[in-house]
Design a protein around this nucleic acid. Structure first.
Length: 156
DNA sequence: GCCAACGTTGGC
DNA sequence: GCCAACGTTGGC
């Protein structure tokens, strides 16, 4: 069992949207490192922190789960999609994705601000490394448990 | 809206 | 293969 964090902008597709649709193909990822995680390492049933980025209060807002094996991102072949990639060969697709399934909202938003305040316990967490821009990243089990524990504690 | 950090592109 | 230019991410 692997643990992940996936970012999404709530203005575009937030945790409420995921709850509404239930399962969502995680399309539009155009970063090789993030793709490699989805293509090579994700397994059905892996746990995901759903993270809101680029918004008023960035942080973990929910739990999701990997719901499919990797398969080619259809938007790469769609000329009308903003994710269209004319250089991708249909016989050897460049971009792969997995389906993501809603599990639940966290009891509260666990803000990035607060996660950073626990930097000692969360040493090595990619999310709080300098200049981090990865939209899909692995999380150590111990970090997963620690952050999950924060959803119930309102004091720092 | 600003801007630092980072990935990608393309000329050479 | 180098690296400057450019575009994007994402916190603040």
């Amino acid at each position: 069992m692997n643990y992940w964090l996936m970012k999404s902008e709530p203005d575009v597709f937030g945790i409420d949207d995921l709850e509404r649709v239930g399962v969502e193909p995680w399309d539009g990822v155009r970063n090789y490192q993030a793709r490699n995680f989805m293509r090579d390492e994700m397994k059905v049933g892996d746990k995901i922190f759903f993270y809101h980025s680029n918004c008023k209060e960035p942080g973990v807002v929910g739990i999701a789960e990997v719901a499919s094996k990797p398969y080619p991102d259809p938007t790469q072949f769609d000329p009308d999609s903003k994710y269209h990639d004319p250089k991708s060969d249909p016989d050897d697709p460049r971009w792969m994705l997995v389906d993501v399934k809603y599990k639940r909202h966290t009891k509260r938003t666990i803000p990035l601000r607060e996660i950073k305040d626990h930097g000692d316990a969360l040493e090595g967490l990619q999310l709080i490394k300098r200049g981090n821009r990865l939209s899909v990243m692995p999380i150590d089990k111990q970090h997963w448990d620690y952050i999950l524990g924060m959803e119930k504690s309102w004091n720092l």
